[in-house]
Computed example of a mutant assay.
Amino acid sequence: MSLFITLRFLDVLDILLVAFLLYQLYLLIKGTVAFNIFIGLFLVYLFWLLVRALNMELLGSFMGQFIGVGILALIVVFQPEIRRFLLLIGSNPQVNRFLSIEQLFTSGKAKSASGQHLKMISRACENMAKTKTGALLVIAQNSELKDYIRTGEKINARISDALLETIFFKNTPLHDGAVIINRNKIAAARCIMPLTNKEDLNPLLGLRHRAAVGITENTDAFAIVVSEETGHISISQMGKLTQNISVIDLSNALENIIIDMDDAD
């Protein structure tokens, strides 16, 4: 009998891939309610192993039925996290370029916004920040956000800094909710965005910030928030919120949207 374990290159690769997937899973559920649920399920699984080791047949049989539907339960419980993970893979420009999938679905489509329009968006955010006018702008990328556009008032107007500032002026009926920008147009205003379930966000943040994180968790959109209390500008992409950025940083982030989409084409 050999005292040494034969370790192949594929075995090492297998271990590294599993470790990478577990780490990505941890990043997705960290700071959310799903993390606590995962810990609970893991403890239940350990208890089931203990019951089996002690040959407790009745309890073991009962828990075995529960463990048997574990995969289905995981899909139901972690549906938002699974959706976010698949979105992370599917919206990666390098993956799309390698598989040449992007061109099949975006052929003939206009980019989310041109450079000139993005400058208008940046200028509007700067002016609203100075006057502490609360705002939430969502810029569509590969996903056109049609389901979210239906929740608001359709506008379909050309992008203008003056129009954006007018929409979010606190005495107008459209200032609540989000403005969605799609295909060089202000598609709709007063749109309802999903709120994030993250527990590690600053508790002082309002619904606009939570909606910005929520929509970027569920889609590949880019969100901009102007705080009504402080006038600070924040951005969110892929579920990550970056707070209190300068107008220059905002302009650079908006320019990266065009660069990323050009790389994916």
Rank of each mutant, 00 (worst) to 15 (best):
residue 5 I to V: 06
residue 15 I to E: 09
residue 17 L to P: 05
residue 17 L to N: 13
residue 19 A to V: 12
residue 20 F to M: 12
residue 21 L to W: 10
residue 23 Y to K: 08
residue 25 L to E: 10
residue 25 L to K: 05
residue 32 T to E: 05
residue 34 A to Y: 11
residue 38 F to Y: 10
residue 40 G to D: 03
residue 43 L to N: 06
residue 45 Y to M: 02
residue 46 L to T: 14
residue 46 L to M: 04
residue 50 L to M: 01
residue 54 L to Y: 07
residue 57 E to M: 01
residue 60 G to V: 04
residue 64 G to Q: 02
residue 65 Q to G: 11
residue 65 Q to W: 15
residue 70 G to K: 14
residue 71 I to E: 04
residue 76 V to M: 09
residue 77 V to G: 04
residue 77 V to H: 06
residue 82 I to N: 10
residue 85 F to Q: 14
residue 95 V to S: 09
residue 97 R to W: 03
residue 103 Q to T: 13
residue 103 Q to W: 08
residue 110 A to Y: 01
residue 116 Q to N: 04
residue 120 M to P: 11
residue 125 C to P: 12
residue 126 E to P: 14
residue 133 T to G: 12
residue 134 G to H: 07
residue 135 A to P: 04
residue 135 A to I: 05
residue 136 L to D: 00
residue 140 A to D: 09
residue 141 Q to A: 01
residue 142 N to L: 05
residue 142 N to A: 10
residue 144 E to P: 05
residue 151 T to Y: 15
residue 151 T to F: 12
residue 151 T to V: 13
residue 152 G to D: 08
residue 155 I to T: 08
residue 156 N to A: 03
residue 157 A to D: 08
residue 158 R to E: 09
residue 162 A to M: 15
residue 165 E to S: 15
residue 165 E to L: 06
residue 167 I to N: 15
residue 168 F to L: 09
residue 169 F to T: 02
residue 170 K to M: 02
residue 170 K to W: 06
residue 173 P to A: 07
residue 175 H to C: 00
residue 177 G to A: 08
residue 181 I to W: 05
residue 182 N to C: 06
residue 182 N to Q: 14
residue 185 K to W: 07
residue 186 I to H: 01
residue 189 A to W: 10
residue 191 C to D: 06
residue 192 I to F: 10
residue 192 I to R: 15
residue 193 M to Y: 07
residue 201 L to A: 01
residue 202 N to R: 13
residue 207 L to T: 00
residue 212 A to G: 14
residue 220 D to R: 05
residue 220 D to Y: 05
residue 223 A to G: 02
residue 228 E to Y: 01
residue 232 H to V: 13
residue 233 I to R: 15
residue 234 S to Y: 00
residue 234 S to N: 01
residue 241 L to P: 08
residue 242 T to A: 05
residue 244 N to L: 04
residue 244 N to D: 14
residue 245 I to Q: 00
residue 251 S to I: 11
residue 252 N to E: 04
residue 258 I to G: 00
residue 259 I to S: 14
residue 261 M to D: 10
residue 261 M to P: 06
residue 264 A to H: 03
